[in-house]
Amino acid sequence: MRLREQPLHALSRQANRGRLYLDQGAARLRIRSSIKGFIRNLHLLYGAFPYLQADTGFADHHVELRRGRRLRALIRPQSRFRTDGQEPFEPFPLHGALPLFEWGINWSFAQRANQYILLHSGVLARADRAVIMAAPPGSGKSTLAAAMMLSGFRLLSDEFGVLDPNSGQLLPMLKPVALKNQSVDVIRAFSDQAVIGPLFVGTRKGDVAHLAPNETSTDGLHRPARPALVIFPAFEAGAALDCRRLPGEDAFAHLAFNSFNYHLLGPTGFHAVADVIAACPAYRLRFGQLESAIEQIRALLDEADGNAQGAAQRHPG
């Protein structure tokens, strides 16, 4: 059963009691909140996620979204994010509870999930072969990730490349894709399949709206993917498509230093990233148009798959 098949009032009641569970793949959340509008947004944006009926009694992150108290409940009402007694951010306006929740989860996950290498990258997969897209904010990474999901790729994450150093595989950390400013209309125009939440105007990252992960993606919540291709995307308005292969050492540096915790993991992180770079061709992709960029990524993935199969035939086992 999916979350959206539950009536809203039932979710609200569970959240009120602090018993709303949400599975994002690499993290399972337990949510407490009495903010109705927030639950309505969750219902929409996490609609395709599995509804967890059974209380396993275990969550990786316990989070609370609550209203400001006393006068703050009446005058310019607030929402506050708290996890295990910590409140990492200043309060948001009450209607901004969802973006606050999303940033709060990103913060908690990046603080705690140090059993993994957390690449700052979007990850999408075709048949469990993963494309890692790493770039600094503002490069069009999230927009490209959103468009790829809407073109048939499975979304694992638009923010975290969760690399398991034991298996060398990437784990889904699935959340709504945060689209900023013009990207919101770009994605709306890109596909009529896009389920997009309300626009939050004037957050610290500009205007933000979230794209709901689709069923293809939520059905793979616990299916890891093997790294196959590394892309460093760079959007440039009106630019022609330009794709250049990067030498391994450059790709390594870009990927490792675009990570949340590479510095923390020492040799573990070094080996895990080196293995990714050894297994995957890496490209810098400048693009001005989503369709042609995705076409190019498909072709690169075909080529990488062909090479990988060729290599497997040459070295069986």
Binding site: F58, D60, N114, Q115, L264, T268
Partner: peptide
């Protein structure tokens, strides 16, 4: 396994601080 993950994260964090 999920619990092992949290504990491993704690071990990694401690090793980093020791370094």
């Amino acid at each position: 396994e999920r619990v092992q993950g949290h504990l491993q994260a704690g071990i990694n964090d401690a090793a980093y601080h020791a370094q």
